[in-house]
Design a protein around this nucleic acid. Structure first.
Lengths: 221, 221
DNA sequence: TCCTTTACGTTGTAATTACAACAGAATCGT
DNA sequence: ACGATTCTGTTGTAATTACAACGTAAAGGA
């Protein structure tokens, strides 16, 4: 577990907490570690969760398959990101989504009760962690609002433009790499893959962008 | 301000906090009150926010108008609900949406710094409030995920069914009242009003539901 | 290297939607 | 009670999408 201390130190959850203090907190917070091979489920829809999770290594997708097999990808989780927080409240309902490893991944589990219940003075950074948790879930909240913004667009082209523009803003570059292949991007934007692929071709013909695999270059007027 | 103590006591933010303790906390948290007439803006996109807000009276919509005037309604805020939390982090960016009063409304403002910074022992319920805040934003998070679920459906009929079914589950009844008129519901589901109206008619013809104004009855097989 | 699998783009068609325009009903203010 | 305004449903058309089927390219495994 200690192998990942450097990673944990750089996560949002432990921002401002020193190396040694993290070691103390790992036991204080009841931390566990689990590894998942690519393609394996980390969490399943319908499960109940009493932990907050942090991705230490790899990459995950939050997704949901409906009764007819239609897949909807809600988001991508990168190294250092927190997930599961929304289901950690004591009487929170079951998970609404699956979380699946898209690469071999390592995940930390923290008992939520211990995280949100400030403990004895031994754990002086506990308050900071609770605040970090609040900020992290706020950021997640805004990510969802941004996704709703993409999804509210009527045409595939508008959805693509709003998504790619936001990524360019986040990555602070006109050349961006996205964490999705074509099918995954279509599942993320809730459009048909082939129609989206066709629309991307038209957008390239119109001089709006260039792309190769999951690398896109946005072209300004 | 004291007129609203009963209302505040029933909100999620102050769950588990006694009447007298709320009075103490109102000053501890730097509370302010503002009233808004129907149609007025409570918050505007682009503003920066350093408060957490609680609706004491009335009803609000979280919405966003794009450059071309297309309106998208992200959610409805009822009495006792918290909003603005996601933008309250110290270096959070500007608001992504407007919040507008759809009825004459009364709103409490709490300075976020004082809320998340646990103060002296004088304020013994402060920790409970921070936890309540965490649970509230978790719930908001799940609301957004549910909305994404409606929005990910390909057809208007599927969007309507998923939304109305979820409302029936929430309201625990097959007869439900929704906080939107037709145009607002269309803006919420990101579909065309007239097409939605037409689809609702077909669904009634197909025996799926009955409706009158904003009252819907779902008919099971 | 060969074979298998996955990923990507293209095309045609049927289905669905957005948009505009309009009419009747309901609501509001005076 | 009256007119003005808002809300709702209806219809037709143009635009857009979903879906299915297919070919090729790239990636992965034996």
């Amino acid at each position: 577990m200690d192998n990942y201390l450097d990673i944990l130190q750089r996560t949002r959850l432990f921002a401002g907490v020193g190396h040694d203090d993290i070691v103390t907190m790992l036991s204080c917070l009841g931390a566990r570690v689990n590894r998942y091979e690519k393609g394996k489920y980390v969490l399943r829809q319908g499960e109940h969760l009493s932990d907050i999770l942090v991705l230490a290594e790899g990459a995950l997708h939050i997704q949901r398959d409906d009764y007819w097999g239609n897949r909807s990808i809600l988001g991508h989780i990168g190294v250092g990101e927190i997930f599961g927080e929304a289901y950690a409240a004591p009487d929170s309902g079951p998970l609404l989504n699956d979380v699946i490893a898209v690469e071999d991944s390592t995940v930390f589990f923290f008992d939520v009760k211990r995280v949100i219940t400030t403990c004895s003075s031994a754990c002086r950074f506990h308050t900071a962690v609770v605040q970090n948790l609040f900020f992290a879930i706020s950021e997640k909240n805004k990510d969802l609002v941004r996704k709703l913004d993409y999804m509210s667009r009527r045409t595939t082209r508008e959805k693509l433009i709003s998504y790619l523009s936001e990524e360019a803003r986040k990555q602070n570059s006109a050349v961006i790499t996205i964490p999705f292949n074509r099918q995954q991007l279509a599942d993320y934007l809730s459009v048909d893959r082939s129609a989206m692929s066709s629309e991307l071709g038209k957008m390239r013909d119109d001089g709006l962008l260039e792309f190769e695999k999951n690398r896109f270059k946005l072209i300004s007027i």
